[in-house]
């Protein structure tokens, strides 16, 4: 079991109703954590999601570590 910090933005922040939370999880990868939270909160289905770990873009298969800071990045729309 590890504890990670999650920060939510945009559509996910509004959907969940909070900016951030601490989550305890048994999963190993960022992708598994996304699936776990998507099921818990019934995330709107989105494609082309990205993930950042500790303020850098990462891979969905990346292993999580105690204290990691995670951001799920919905499709961007700058400009």
């Amino acid at each position: 079991m590890i504890t990670v910090q999650i920060e939510y933005f945009a559509i996910l922040r509004e959907h969940i109703g909070k900016n951030a939370e601490e989550v305890q999880t048994e999963v190993v990868t960022a992708g598994e954590l996304y699936d776990e939270l998507a099921a818990r909160y019934a995330f709107p289905h989105m494609t082309h999601m990205k993930v950042a770990i500790n303020d850098e873009f990462s891979e969905w298969g990346a292993a999580l570590a105690e204290g990691d800071s995670i951001v799920f990045i919905p499709p961007v729309a700058g400009g």
């Binding site: 559509i11 950042a52 961007v76 400009g79």
Partner: peptide, 8 residues
């Protein structure tokens, strides 16, 4: 910037 910077 439009493709890569995380702005919504």
């Amino acid at each position: 910037v439009k493709h890569r910077v995380p702005v919504w």
